[in-house]
Design a protein around this nucleic acid. Structure first.
Lengths: 306, 306
DNA sequence: AATTTATTTTTGTCTAGGACAATATGCACC
DNA sequence: GGTGCATATTGTCCTAGACAAAAATAAATT
């Protein structure tokens, strides 16, 4: 009926905290919501759009002081500049186009085709990883909507879930807990990492998203896991990621490795200690190999741990 | 290191809004966090536990005024009373026990066994639905941890995803968009509903969780869906669910049905109009049948719509 | 006695403007 | 070009008050 959004709505839709929205209004004069009878803010659709765009630009490194005074055209202009169209694999490009059409089966079929053609590992590293990024960018530029993005994610999730089921039962010996931090909602990166580890013969204990740190730690210990993997997408504040990872590190026994990867860790301010950051899925096989050689080497010489 | 949580942490871990935490402190004298140098609240682990329990009791219909003055033993006592152990199917009971053990494969295998034994539909309505509830309760009573719950959810998700893939391609004619409202994070109910619809030959467009209302509407229209299904789990405020559903209803063309189901809609204060609430998965087949007969009946007599 | 209607209490969310530390930026200096 | 320090920017937290929606209770009606 009335196209107005409360401050809580806007917080949910843009990912910008209520306090931040209010302080922006005070400091920069934007947004400028109307007020209802009760004196509460009512954001119009246009302001929400603009805030969404601002949020995206912020996440890509821009600063609020520059961004908030700009009008919509200038913001779009900036979006163009800061995220130039990147060249893409021909397959990825094709899929991106398919996503834009109404035909959802086509996307599914093409993904399956490519999976069988290249095998799971290459499919993940060469196609899905860049495609994920490209889908995000396409949304950023307004080429795809949230709808298309969700559809893509669901197709991929389903495809990878099925693919992982049909992998041979891992030769035990190396077990891993895989999950995301509390607050993190995106599960596709997690699934991709699970696949990569499973491909290396690691027995993966997938816990889904948003596991409390205490439970991650308990799960790793109780199941005698050698390693904990955390998938991090973009987070509201990057220092949240860091502090949570550090806290998890202190909770885990030191003989359990802690790995973190995903777009949320690239450009993270260098971990203090004992946390391995992955900027790329492709680093996983080598890391697993090293871990495996370490573990088998250590096994015979028991003890020597205080 | 230091076992203290900021107010944001507590908000994330308990699902209680910051403002609410502060106002409780003011009104009821609980929680009573310490303050750090800067004067900021620091909640100890015990207070967080207590708040979690309080949140659970609130969700089950208790009132803050009664709950907040109570100490921990009394809260547990109340939890026992308000959620008496229910009798369970022998299969469900067995699975609940398996979940408590470390052996994750056993859960998986037993679920698969039962799925093949009963078929997907009975598996969902007779086993999974009550088991979901039982797992929630078991967590409530401290019998299972978050870890076990997550493991269960992931196994189920994977199992149902695979099962849905192996269903025959739906005979087209009836198409549905299925998703959850913005803010809703739980996707299992969604997957179960998708399965039920797919079993009835409905072509399901799964959009995953948290789709903005505008995008739900757009997806339904663009893909010529006859119906939109929303899966609602427990929501912070129930009126949020209502208002969002009503808003979605107004956005959708009136020839598209809107269905909502899940634990979040039971006991919801009667929808104004044009929204069908499902308290049970079993109601789905009949509703689809009716819809199908309506649609085929209407098709020939085109027009008569302003 | 049961059901409807009015009144009171409870409760979550919103507001304002101030404060401060953590991060980023600009600039002199090596 | 890199390094250290002063300065500016920015998100989050604070207090305390206000108010409407929901729930509980009381009152009035059938």
């Amino acid at each position: 009926m009335h196209p107005f959004h409360s401050i809580t709505d806007v917080e949910r839709e843009t990912g910008i905290a209520r306090d931040t929205l209010r302080v922006w209004e005070r400091r920069y004069g934007f947004p400028t919501p109307q007020r209802n009878q009760r004196g509460e803010r009512e954001y119009g659709q246009d302001q929400v759009e603009r805030l969404r765009l601002i949020k995206q630009l912020l996440d890509s490194g821009q600063r609020p002081g520059k961004l908030l005074p700009l009008n919509l055209p200038r913001l779009h202009q900036l979006a163009q500049q800061s995220h130039p169209q990147q060249s893409l694999d021909v397959d990825a490009e094709q899929l991106l186009n398919l996503l834009g059409t109404k035909d959802s089966c086509a996307v599914r079929h093409r993904l399956e085709q490519l999976l069988h053609q290249h095998g799971l590992r290459l499919f993940l590293t060469e196609l899905v990883a860049p495609l994920n990024h490209a889908v995000g960018e396409a949304w950023f530029h307004g080429r795809l909507g949230v709808l298309e993005e969700h559809r893509y994610v669901e197709e991929l999730r389903s495809l990878l879930t099925v693919a992982m089921q049909s992998l041979p039962s891992p030769r035990s010996g190396l077990r891993a807990v895989l999950t995301t931090l509390p607050g993190e909602q995106h599960g596709v990166g997690l699934l991709m990492a699970s696949c990569m580890l499973a491909l290396e013969g690691v027995e993966v204990l997938q816990l889904g998203v948003q596991t409390p740190l205490e439970e991650i730690s308990r799960g790793a210990v109780e199941n005698r896991c050698r390693l904990v993997g955390i998938s991090c997408s973009s987070f509201p504040q990057r220092r949240t990621t860091t502090s949570q990872l550090v806290r998890l590190r202190t909770m885990l026994p030191k003989e359990i490795d802690l790995w973190a990867g995903g777009s949320g860790v690239t450009g993270l301010p260098a971990m203090p200690c004992g946390i391995r950051l992955f900027s790329d899925l492709q680093q996983i096989p080598a890391a697993v190999a090293i871990l495996r050689s370490q573990t088998t080497a250590e096994k015979p010489t028991a003890g020597a741990v205080d």
